[in-house]
Amino acid sequence: MVQARIDFLEKGHFEPLANAVIATAQRFSGKQPLVLDVGAGTGYYLNALQEQVSVSAAVALDISKYALRRSARLLPDALCLVCDVWRPLPVAGESVDLLLNIFAPRNVPEFARVCRDEGVALVVTPLPHHLREIAEPAGLLDIRPGKDIEVAASMADFFDVVDNVRVEFTMALSPVDVSNVATMGPAGHHNLPGDVDPLPHSADTTAAFSVQVFRRRPRTRD
């Protein structure tokens, strides 16, 4: 599953999304932010960000030690830590300028604790028609309509919505790419090697995402 993700991302298929994340971060995060990537996976997006944005420090968290081994190689200047997002994050309170949460679970109270006042959380989720051309044969999990609305509601106790950018593009996927898509995400836990046999040999496939920006509401001080 991790190797499938590495192989797919190295082909550049999600580069337009990475570019959108970088552009959004540049608009909202300020100069030399301290960046926390919660659910960093193999470090692809954090690495892309660091290539374009000067950061004061970078921390990558993920529950997969195998993914973080890749992150550590890709991000020699970042602190890469194995972490369950549902537990307290190993980060000081009010220290984070920019929090990335890309296709990962959201522990909103912990996000609120670690983000400084006016800090930014950038959350990326797929839209319902993401990968629609191959979703059924690949056995991909359904994406509920209104996911971005649910995300905004979950963040509302601590964060204000600043922006919501839709990112859509078409990918030309080879047979190997289609197989990697089928096994690199949550559905990969359920797909056995034989399950990829019905996949299309190639496909022009839709990629569609919501890039939501939230700003940490200032705390009430006693």
Rank of each mutant, 00 (worst) to 15 (best):
T170I: 15
R116K: 15
N164D: 15
A208N: 06
P76D: 02
L192H: 13
G146E: 09
G188K: 02
V161K: 07
E133K: 10
R116N: 05
Q32T: 09
E150T: 13
R132W: 07
G119N: 04
V120L: 14
A156P: 10
G185T: 03
P109M: 13
Q26C: 05
A40W: 00
D97L: 02
L141D: 08
P175Q: 05
P16F: 06
K11G: 15
A57D: 11
R216Y: 03
A72N: 01
K65C: 11
S210K: 00
H201Q: 15
V21A: 00
R215D: 00
A135N: 01
I134D: 03
P200L: 01
D77V: 09
P16A: 05
A203G: 03
A67V: 04
D195M: 14
A58D: 04
Y66G: 03
G43V: 06
A57H: 08
H201E: 15
F159H: 07
M171C: 12
D204Q: 14
V162C: 10
R5P: 00
N191K: 11
G146H: 08
K11V: 13
R69M: 12
A187I: 03
L36T: 01
S54N: 12
P200R: 06
L100M: 12
E136A: 15
M184E: 10
I134G: 01
L89E: 02
P16W: 06
N19E: 15
E118L: 10
H130F: 07
D148K: 07
T220I: 14
E94M: 10
L17Y: 06
A152K: 12
H201M: 14
M1Y: 02
F103M: 15
T170P: 02
V161G: 02
D7P: 03
M184W: 05
A72H: 07
L79G: 04
A207D: 06
A135P: 03
G39A: 10
E10H: 08
V38R: 05
L75T: 06
E150P: 01
R5Y: 14
W86D: 13
L89P: 05
H13I: 07
R27C: 12
